[in-house]
Simulated assay, not measured.
Amino acid sequence: MSASVAGVPEGARVILATHNAKKLHELQRILVAAVPGLEAEAVISSAGIDLPDAVEEAVTFQGNALLKAHSAAEATGLLAVADDSGLSVDVLGGCPGIFSARWSGRHGDDEANNDLLLAQLADIPDEYRTARFVCAAALVAPDGTEIVERGVMTGRLLRERHGEGGFGYDPIFLPDGEGRSAAELAPEQKDAISHRGEAFRAIAEHVAQLLG
């Protein structure tokens, strides 16, 4: 990477504290598009350097995002970015929330999570199936500086899966103002309206300042 490109110094790297390949591609795409001069190969995953997952023992999205980002920054000496995100369903009092990835009891089992949530809401009328995706994105520098940004995508839950894209609850989530599920949107369309897109575009501004 050239040191003369938009002020990003040569050799600068950012670590995304995730082992989730689909999430990595999404967050990498957003950061590279938002930070002038930041090239794709400069955005690396904690999985790529064999860092263990941080224990997500906080009780908020922000807390868990900060735990992961601090762990990665301390272990690597790099600028670290992490997110914690999930689905908040109004009729369930905000659940699955921080338990979204393991709602069915098995972490990262998207199919089981979707099956369970659809079953739990089977008798709920459409007007009460409102929900929102929430994302807390954390940026931590090697000197301990920390910044958190938040993003929200509102919508409602469908009664069956639609679309093959995205991941998690995307196939059963209809964003407000859309006629397609989040899983039916092109990546760029989803980035433009998603909770993660909103949070990481805000974080990207701080990444650009710190790298500069």
Rank of each mutant, 00 (worst) to 15 (best):
S194P: 07
A122L: 15
L211E: 03
F167G: 04
T130F: 04
Q62S: 11
A72L: 02
I44P: 12
A34G: 05
E188A: 14
F133W: 10
G197Y: 02
S71T: 10
A112R: 11
E111F: 09
G155S: 07
R129T: 03
R102F: 07
E26P: 09
G177M: 00
A75V: 12
P171S: 04
R150L: 10
Y169T: 00
R13G: 07
H195K: 03
L118H: 06
L24H: 03
A122Q: 15
G105T: 07
T60E: 11
G105Q: 13
A202G: 06
G165Y: 00
V59M: 12
G86D: 11
D50I: 10
N114K: 04
N113Q: 13
E146D: 14
A141N: 08
D83Y: 00
D143L: 10
G37C: 13
A6T: 05
R132F: 03
V89R: 00
C135M: 04
R156D: 01
T145E: 14
E178R: 01
A182I: 00
V14E: 06
A192T: 02
I147T: 10
H19F: 05
G163V: 00
N114V: 15
S181E: 00
D123I: 05
L67G: 04
K23Y: 02
G151H: 11
G37R: 14
H206M: 03
V14N: 06
E26H: 05
G165M: 02
L92I: 08
D115V: 04
